[in-house]
């Protein structure tokens, strides 16, 4: 056994290092956020929300990109949430002991962390090549594929937390299983499922890679789902890499908007579950 002084010294060094790591990590992340806040806030004004993306060196805003992001995220959630909840229901209820559930859980966890650019390539092959052009719909489907695994995971986890006695009580009343699931299990798991959906929205609102060659981008205001549509992340990507000052400023404004939206969604998601825990 090493001497006491030596052990104490090693302990002091290692604990200082770990505290230093925490300080360093939090410092770097704080620097990034503060710089983002500074650059974004100085570029943010009303015209960002009321005008469309401009030509280089002309005044303009991000209205079409913001709207595009909202529309595509909304469609993605509309497609992904029902599929995710139903698949999660299968794994926790009807197929709880089925082999298939095990396979799907594995597959779902892979999809959960698979590179999002791969999803973009997949949707490009399926929806862009076959239709012959880029479209907002293809972008939405790509985002939906990112929504599904998040919702599946939280739905299954939350339904498994619902005590079996509740289900048995429902069945004892003579209800069929689907009514028990709808009126008892879903109700008990609601807060968790809502959290999952909110986190999924937070995840896709900053996703850039899957939109690059599905929704592409659009310099003009467009609500046509069969045509390319602008989105905040892609606009940031294009504008940040441009040499024009006003485009770069708009990129910072967009980056701030996305970060605020993502953080707000994550905080709301947290509140939804913590409220539930207090009951």
């Amino acid at each position: 056994m090493a001497s006491m002084t030596r052990r104490k010294t090693i302990n002091a060094v290692m604990m200082t290092l770990s505290t230093g790591a925490a300080a360093l990590g939090l410092f770097v992340l704080a620097v990034i956020l503060l710089y983002l806040l500074y650059k974004g806030a100085s570029a943010l004004n009303l015209s960002v929300f009321t005008q469309d993306t401009p030509s280089p060196m002309e005044p303009g805003g991000l209205r079409n990109a913001i709207l595009g992001s909202v529309i595509m995220s909304a469609i993605a959630v509309a497609i992904g949430t029902p599929i995710g909840i139903l698949a999660g229901t299968y794994m926790a209820e009807y197929g709880r002991y089925a082999k298939l559930s095990k396979v799907i859980r594995f597959v779902n966890d892979i999809l959960l962390s698979a590179p999002s650019i791969i999803v973009g390539l997949f949707v490009y092959q399926v929806l862009v090549v076959s239709l012959g052009h880029f479209s907002a719909l293809a972008g939405s489907v790509a985002l939906a594929i990112l929504v599904i695994p998040i919702v599946v995971r939280t739905t299954e986890d939350m339904l498994r937390l619902v005590p079996d006695q509740l289900r048995e009580a429902g069945l004892a009343m003579g209800w069929p299983r689907w009514i028990v699931i709808r009126t008892v299990a879903y109700k008990a798991a609601m807060a968790g499922i809502v959290t999952g959906v909110l986190l999924a929205i937070a995840r896709i609102s900053g996703e850039t890679a899957p939109l690059l060659f599905t929704a592409l981008s659009n310099n003009f205001f467009s609500l046509d789902l069969t045509q390319p549509m602008a989105s905040l992340p892609i606009t940031i990507f294009q504008f940040a890499l441009s040499p024009y000052d006003n485009w770069q400023a708009l990129a910072w404004a967009g980056a701030l908007l996305i970060t605020v939206a993502v953080l707000a969604l994550a905080i709301v998601a947290r509140l939804v579950t913590s409220k539930k825990e207090k009951h």
């Binding site: 139903l86 229901t89 892979i110 999809l111 791969i118 999803v119 594929i145 599946v152």
Partner: peptide
């Protein structure tokens, strides 16, 4: 019967998850 319909619906959704991964692989 309604239970079977709902059960099959959830099964179909679960299979969609599987098909997405297979689809990604096949398309690549």
């Amino acid at each position: 019967q309604s239970d079977r319909i709902f059960g099959s619906l959830t099964l179909a959704a679960a299979v969609v998850v599987l098909l997405v991964l297979l689809g990604v692989f096949a398309s690549l």
